[in-house]
């Protein structure tokens, strides 16, 4: 088991190191999230009260859209020089490779989100720090759902036609329940409502979603990578 964890850590560290040297995915993703935040201000009156009410939902659309830029690169990065074949041939399990890559993606996605969040708060005049720990919990759970599905679709689509189109096309429909839960909770938290009996269901659903899809992905990823 410790061997497995060490392999996971090696893969995650490798991906993060490669990303920190080029910064191609995180920069693209950040710039994209700012552009979407800007575009939303034209679509919805950014000073209106109604916009503030739905802003938690908008935020997750930004995260999901900008996140695909990071997720798309995850396995595609390994294509030049046949690195993917080398990784698959390496004496580590597909699950370790998947988990390592997922953790690297998770860190990058969270970084993008934590930078976007204050910008969003300033642009839309939203006081999002009121229930900071709860908001972070929702962010961690929602982002893990996006990460796990996105990393799996990244592995699925790495060698197929229309890779950039297929990843969001596959990810978003399956992600619907998790996104809904994250949106509902974020909207409630930004509106100053606590997580109580009304929306604790969403929290449980998010946790369940994360656990189920992490487990299924770990079981099936070997099949996807090796065939």
């Amino acid at each position: 088991m410790t061997g497995f964890l060490r392999q996971v850590a090696v893969i995650a560290a490798k991906d993060l190191r490669a990303e920190l040297r080029t910064k191609e995915a995180i920069n693209g993703s950040l710039a994209f999230s700012l552009v979407i935040l800007l575009l939303f201000s034209f679509a919805f009156d950014p000073t209106g009260d109604t916009t503030r009410e739905i802003s938690g939902g908008l935020l997750w659309i930004v995260f999901a859209f900008a996140g695909t830029l990071i997720l798309n690169r995850s396995f595609a990065r390994e294509l030049p020089n046949d690195c993917l074949d080398a990784l698959i041939a390496a004496p580590i399990s597909g699950a370790a490779l998947f988990l390592g890559k997922a953790i690297a993606n998770y860190v990058l996605l969270l970084a993008m989100e934590l930078i976007s969040l204050p910008v969003f708060g300033i642009f839309y005049n939203v006081r999002w720090t009121g229930q900071f720990p709860e908001l972070m919990l929702v962010l961690l759970l929602g982002t893990w759902a996006l990460t796990v599905l996105g990393t799996m679709t990244s592995a699925l689509t790495v060698n197929i036609r229309l890779r950039e189109v297929m990843l969001p096309l596959l990810t978003y429909p399956v992600l619907v329940p998790a996104l809904m839960g994250a949106m509902q909770l974020t909207m409630a938290l930004i509106a100053g409502k606590p997580i109580d009996a009304d929306n604790v269901m969403w929290l449980k659903m998010l946790i369940g979603f994360d656990v189920i899809y992490t487990a299924v992905s770990l079981v099936l990823v070997e099949t996807v990578l090796v065939g």
Binding site: L149, M152, L156, I160, L170, P173, V174, V176, P177, M180, G181, Q184, M201, W202, M205, G208, F209, I212, Y213, V216, L220, T223, V224, G227
Partner: peptide, 23 residues
């Protein structure tokens, strides 16, 4: 292979979708 994996992913999602949208 890919289609089979995705079919399993989709089928697992169906009850979660129904349950969550019920709210």
């Amino acid at each position: 292979t890919f289609a089979a994996v995705w079919s399993i992913f989709s089928f697992i999602d169906v009850p979660i979708v129904i349950f969550s949208i019920k709210w």
